[in-house]
Simulated assay, not measured.
Amino acid sequence: MVHIEEIPDEEPLNHPHGLKNEHLSLDRMIAEAASAHFGRPMTGADLPDAMAAVKSVSADEFIRQMNKMPLFMTELDETGENDEGPNEALEAIKALQEEGDPWEVAQNFKISGNERFKVKNYEDAREFYTKALNVNCDRDDINVACLNNRAQCNLEMRNYRKCITDCKAALKLDVKQDKAWFRAAKALLALDKIEEAEACIDNAIMLKPDHTQVADLGKKIKARKDHLEKMENQRRERERKKKWEEEAIKMSLQAREISTKSTKQPPEMPDGIKIKFMEEGKIESGLLFPVLLIYHLHLQTDMIAAMPETTSVGDQLTEVLAEPLEWDEQREYNPNSVECYMETKTGGLVKVGKNVSLLAVLSNGKCEITDGLVRILVVPKKRNTEFIENWKKTMKKA
């Protein structure tokens, strides 16, 4: 019979390897087992020396240190350790880049430029292509490639004139460079130099007749040319109509015996405010005049953009003075309580009848239109004498 010995709950459990169950945590049990087996506490594997050196460094500092290593650089940092002196590793790579025959040095710079271009860092790429060209190697293929690539960088950066300059330089070395013709055409199109753009794209099409991008650019240039020609034709038509209208207005005023004059400093008029025909382009339709009503005693004005020559001054005043003027606190201005005057050619005044048409007033031989604007002075009847005296004093000072 097998004897079974009962172990009391309070009796410690003896393990052959010396492990005691004292309600220890799993981590502590593993640590004690390791200590018993290896003769020392288990604290984790030792770090390599290089990693141990940065164990206590913050994440930001670690990234900064890594960025000084050329292999891990995300941006160009030319300072060395502790931000003092040059970055020796980077300087070593630069030195290697500039070693060798001139064409090898230029090729290395070109490769660096290509790498920057792939990640759309056009400014740095352009700088490397410039360095390659400054080597002045005797390999036209390298120089042409760098000029073409730098032209593309300038195109991406919208430096269109520099792009064109690089394309010209590339074509001087090799006139069959389709890329140079294509990029020059693209830059010229951006500058709206359509005739030159057409010439360049025609050469590119001759060299690459089946190239989709070349053909598409040719279509864009053609569309832009058509648009600009349309705009130019419209501009010329507007100019033609403007000149015709000016001459027709001049002849119409002469036929009506209306005098005009211009001053050295004419007032600025809003667009469309001028003497014109009632119906555009139709001389027989009659004239419209811009009229300035001047409330001389209150230093206020009202602009009538287009008063028909057949309208009487009284009818126009009835429309303008139908409601009290905002600044007329004494309510001195209404169609029945005012009189109208115009200045004569000699600086005097002529009273304007309210029932007389504007055409009759302007063609009386005494008044004239100044700078294309009819000026009518509006005065309260009860202050008529005051106005005339003020006018005389003003004329004497003038």
Rank of each mutant, 00 (worst) to 15 (best):
S285C: 02
L317F: 06
E326I: 02
M251G: 09
G286L: 03
K264R: 10
I283S: 10
L321S: 05
T311W: 12
K282V: 07
K250R: 15
L325W: 12
K282F: 05
M251F: 13
E280G: 02
M307L: 11
A255G: 07
E284K: 09
E284I: 02
G272V: 02
A305F: 07
L321G: 06
L317R: 10
T318Q: 13
L299S: 15
S312Q: 09
S285T: 04
H298G: 08
E257I: 01
N334Y: 12
T311L: 13
G286S: 08
M251S: 15
K261T: 09
N334L: 07
L293N: 09
T260R: 12
T263D: 07
E323S: 15
M251P: 04
S285R: 02
E332P: 01
K276S: 05
G314M: 12
E329K: 11
H296F: 10
T318V: 10
I283Q: 14
K250T: 10
L288G: 03
T311I: 13
P335R: 11
Y295H: 02
E326N: 06
I275F: 05
G281P: 05
I294H: 15
S337C: 04
G314D: 13
Y333V: 00
Y295Q: 03
S312W: 10
M303Q: 13
D328N: 03
K274S: 12
P308Y: 07
R331I: 00
L299C: 09
M303K: 12
K274I: 03
Y333S: 01
L325K: 15
Y295G: 01
Q265W: 05
L293W: 15
V320N: 01
H296D: 10
L292D: 10
E332I: 01
P335Y: 13
T310K: 14
T310W: 12
L297Q: 13
I275Y: 07
G314A: 13
Q316G: 03
M307P: 04
L292H: 11
G272F: 05
G272C: 05
K250L: 05
E323W: 12
P266Q: 06
D315I: 01
E284C: 00
M307V: 09
G314P: 09
Y341R: 07
Y295T: 02
E329L: 03
P324Q: 07
T310A: 13
E339L: 13
E309I: 00
Y333K: 00
E319F: 10
K274E: 08
I304N: 09
A322H: 14
E339P: 05
S259M: 07
E319G: 11
T318W: 11
